Simulated scan of single mutants.
Amino acid sequence: MTSPTRRPLGAPADRSEAVLSRLQLLVTRKLDGLLQGDYAGLLPGPGSEAGESREYRPGDDVRRMDWPVTARTTTPHVRRTVADRELETWLAVDLSASLDFGTGQWLKRDVVVAAAAAIAHLTVRGGNRIGAVIGSGGGAAAPTGRWRAASPVAGPGVYTRLPARSGRKEAQGLLRAIAGTEIRPGRGDLGRLVDMLNRPPRRRGVAVVVSDFLAPPAQWVRPLRKLRVRHDVLAVEVVDPRELELPDVGVLPVVDPETGELHEVQTADPALRHRYAAAAAAQRAEISAALRSAGAAHLRLRTDRDWLLDMVRFVAAQRHARTRGTTR
């Protein structure tokens, strides 16, 4: 994706701390209310411990049919299950150069950090563990401190693995490491980043991929489908309005943040703007279809909208689906 403006690579430490402090306040105020009542995760799944039975409803998983109760009552019933309480959540955080862009209230990278903060807040309680893998462009930057990478990963781009740990302080350290990761020029490999969550194999949990998904779906859909076999998967897509349509501002110089190539675009041409919007809509439809085919829940956050309100609505919809006996 081309970018008309870029800020200097790497965010100052004081800016990262200020952004995180504000995010924590926003997240705590708006998301705490969603944690009241019975335990349920960000993507509430069926759990593994058997509970009581209830009548079958359209959309229920037929694999959860309670045949003895169905036989006794002659009415289809399904088994309700108790959600697992100690879950492991892994984040795959894409901080490639295309995320260092934004024309709304936030930069795309800020929305990525914000999404990670909200997910950590929703999943860290009750002894749950949270870890992350971070991918960026070329270079040799990595978080410092006790959240140093467990093992460097070779290949295109820079990849850092942060081990899964429990506790709010540990989650805060993980978020600081994500916010302090320097975005470097060059192309990363989203498929490789997602595949890092598949190796080594882990017990069933929640996997969250945060990216703009601008890499070709052929690069990442297969690792994502493989990830869905063992885990509940959430794909958080970060979008800027200028990636969907161009404004009429005359000749616009744009730079590809991943390659550094400079182009001049005549945005006064209505036919060009129409073709751009059509191509962008087709690209987003392809991304949505690929995520759906991989079995991932899909949340889209925009830099020009209240990302936290969109996340609240998404979580509320997931909880509502769970009360109706579905897992999606």
Rank of each mutant, 00 (worst) to 15 (best):
Q172E: 14
P163A: 11
A13V: 14
A150P: 00
A279L: 06
R176T: 14
A141F: 08
L26H: 06
R187S: 07
R300Y: 00
E286A: 15
T89E: 04
S136E: 01
G137T: 02
R302F: 15
L252N: 08
G205W: 10
A296G: 04
R176P: 00
T70Y: 01
V153T: 13
T2N: 14
P217A: 08
W220A: 02
G139Y: 02
T323N: 09
V78D: 04
A117Y: 03
R168G: 07
I178W: 13
V62G: 00
D32P: 00
F101S: 10
D212V: 08
E286K: 05
V78I: 12
T5Y: 10
A279C: 00
L95N: 11
G205P: 02
E237T: 08
D38S: 10
R85G: 07
R305C: 02
R64P: 00
S288D: 05
H320N: 12
L95P: 03
R292S: 14
P44K: 04
V251T: 15
S16D: 14
L299F: 07
L107S: 05
A118Y: 03
A13R: 14
R324M: 15
T323H: 12
A142C: 00
R322D: 10
G41P: 08
F314M: 08
T75K: 14
A11R: 13
D94C: 09
G260A: 08
V255A: 01
R146L: 06
R313C: 12
G157N: 04
G145C: 04
A321Y: 05
Y276P: 01
V236R: 07
L99T: 11
P8I: 07
A40I: 06
L309Y: 11
A281H: 07
L190E: 01
A141W: 12
G325E: 07
G41D: 09
V238A: 04
E49G: 01
V19Y: 12
G186L: 04
G126M: 01
T123G: 08
S3E: 13
G104D: 10
P257S: 11
W147K: 02
D84L: 06
A215Y: 02
V233A: 09
A132W: 09
D306R: 09
A235W: 01
V210M: 13
F314N: 12
G102K: 03
E88I: 09
V221M: 05
G205T: 06
A71T: 03
Q24V: 04
P156Y: 13
W220I: 00
R187C: 00
W147F: 11
T75V: 03
L91K: 11
G104L: 12
A278Q: 15
A120Y: 04
R54S: 05
R129S: 11
P185N: 01
S53I: 00
L91Y: 12
Q172F: 09
H298W: 14
A142H: 12
L299M: 10
A317F: 09
E237S: 10
A142V: 06
A285L: 13
A142D: 05
D240Q: 07
Q105T: 13
L99K: 06
K226F: 02
H77W: 02
V255H: 05
R72N: 02
A11W: 07
P156T: 13
T326M: 14
D84E: 15
P12D: 08
E55T: 00
